[in-house]
Amino acid sequence: MLTEQTADGDFDETAISQRLTDSVTGVDGVTALAPSLRYIVATATARVLRRSGGVPVGVDVSRTAGGVRVRVDAHLDDSRPVTEIVDEIFAVIEVDLVAGTEEPLGELEIDLRVVTRGH
């Protein structure tokens, strides 16, 4: 169940990002995800402050005024058409976000980029 909400009912973007990272990586044809913005920030902060970085995640999830925005940079293989993989990624994200979420999410905006397509 997707119930990554903090005790005061806030939408826990970090926990959901981690969960979606696992789901999207499991889609056939997805070989890897590029680091999410939060992870890049965590890594940059770690470099500047000489601390340990965050847990690698490949999906950025954030609340917007009207709903939820998800950003994914994906590396694909050539096992099937790109659009087929894209549609499955969209479906996985939609199902995963909605399932178990107790409050209406509003409009879901998915910003998906195929970074590479390899063999």
Binding site: V82, T83, V86, D87, I110, L112, R113, V114, R117
Partner: peptide, 14 residues
């Protein structure tokens, strides 16, 4: 955009 209407971007090089 896929047939189902899902928008995406793909690297020009790919």
């Amino acid at each position: 955009t896929t047939e189902r209407g899902n928008p995406f971007a793909i690297a020009d090089a790919s």
